[in-house]
Design a protein around this nucleic acid. Structure first.
Length: 211
DNA sequence: AAAACGGGGGC
DNA sequence: GCCCCAGTTTT
């Protein structure tokens, strides 16, 4: 039987094969966890998050902390000083401007320190259920491999995927692409043999035909 | 447009 | 030992 290779169908297959469930929806914790995850592997992110929230319970607690103390706490999990400073800064800014509550408007999120397009969109999606594409390295790499986009700029990928994928897929595709990217569609030496969508992948088909 | 942040894991 | 990682900020 033939596989439907329309992007929406391929995306649905990936989401089904690599589900990502979020056990944390609290906006502030999602925001902090997402900042912790920037350029950092999931295992380190999880450990840093446990360490952080075992000592500091919320925005006010972190806002009153010394950045240096927070840094020493999360450093064993591969976090750097700049990131600890960012988390203290964003907590203070939230307290000052929004009574410690994370806003749900994209433009307000983007004004916060340490929050860029990926982080803002993940918070919108995970915490507020607002459809938002978070184009990280996994989404960017895999979209290019599949042949959905042909660009080096993540902003271009975000714009093209917005047109390519149904709105209901914008949220779930990010988390599932991350799982997919970690388990199979790795940056180097992807495990194509076990891939559920290899028959729809430009990169796989090209490598297969090159023998 | 490119550098800097940064410890830990894969190879 | 070298390179990369759920990016963002600064130069």
């Amino acid at each position: 039987m033939k596989i439907d290779c329309k992007p929406n169908e391929v995306a649905r297959r990936i989401i089904q094969a690599f589900p990502r469930e979020y056990n944390e929806r609290d906006p502030f914790r999602v925001l902090v966890n997402t900042i912790l995850s920037q350029r950092t592997r999931d295992e380190n992110t999880d450990e840093a998050s446990r360490r952080l929230f075992s000592k500091y319970k919320g925005p006010a607690s972190i806002a009153n902390a010394r950045a240096e103390d927070l840094y020493e706490l999360v450093r064993p999990a591969g976090m750097y000083r700049q990131k600890a400073e960012r988390i203290v800064s964003v907590a203070r800014e939230l307290l000052k401007r929004y009574q410690g509550k994370v806003p749900s408007e994209i433009h307000k999120l983007l004004e916060l320190p340490g929050v860029g397009r990926k982080t803002a969109n993940i918070v919108l999606n995970v915490s507020f259920g607002i459809p938002a594409l978070a184009v990280d390295t996994h989404v960017h790499r895999i979209s290019n491999r599949l042949g959905w986009v042909k660009t080096k700029m993540p902003e271009d990928t975000e714009r093209e995927l917005t047109n390519l994928l149904e709105e209901e897929l914008w949220g779930p595709i990010n988390g599932s692409m991350v799982e997919f990217g970690r388990k199979l569609c790795k940056p180097r030496k992807p495990l194509c043999d076990n891939c559920p969508v290899k028959q729809c992948c430009d990169s796989y088909l090209a490598s297969k035909n090159s023998y």
